[in-house]
Amino acid sequence: MTNENLIQYIYGIADNSLILGQRISELCGHGPTLETDIAMTNMALDLLGQTRSYFQYVAELSPKAITEDDVAFLRTEREYKNVLLVEQPNTDFAYIIVRQYFFDVFHFMFLKALENSKNINFQAIAKKSLKEVSYHKRFSGDWLKRLGDGTEESKQKAQKAVNDLWAYTDELFHMTENDKVVAEAGYGVDTTSFKDEYYAVITALLQEATLDVPETKYFQKGGKHGIHTEYMGYILSDMQYMQRTYPDMKW
């Protein structure tokens, strides 16, 4: 296993936090109440904080003299390895919460496993992030129950979001060739090992939220190989705007 294997592996983890953090940041100032706005922003800050830890590590591993910002802002779309789920738009609060919950449960299980990595950097980041993500999972899960078992309108909206976003859950467990290499070396995580547990957990919550569990077996994938949805280009043009327009400057 080479440093390049590790770097690619980190993209697969950290880009999820980066892109979801970016997505939630878009909401700051537009939430349904001030209280919710503040809570969601806390999640964005946690995710971006995690991203920084990972990318600072990438900068250390890289043979080139690069910074966390080069990693975050100066890759091409193909080089971002986040799953498609996190780049889905903020269609409405139901989408935001379902997207968050589907990701949070995975994220939590992933970090639990990453805590046992042979790599001490991964251990440390996982340990710190677990506390944050454990709270995210509770927040999004509690909200999903409220939307599902709230009013007729909220139930419909939540069900639609669940149906639409369900197709993006399977990709969370897709192991790329690189993922396998890093997992076999004892540094990475075999996500297939907790796939059943994941579906059991979200199924139980959906039932508690009086929502139907989708039966579709058709899933979307591509993000982990850099093949993204059309949304990604817009996310990046926003996010990279300054660095692309004014290259090589300090901010």
Binding site: C28, T41, N42, L45, D69, M239, Y241, M242
Partner: peptide, 17 residues
Amino acid sequence: SRAPSLRRKVALLAKVQ
């Protein structure tokens, strides 16, 4: 969403929050 660095992004986010 357009802040030029991660450090600036989290600082601005925290400020607006």
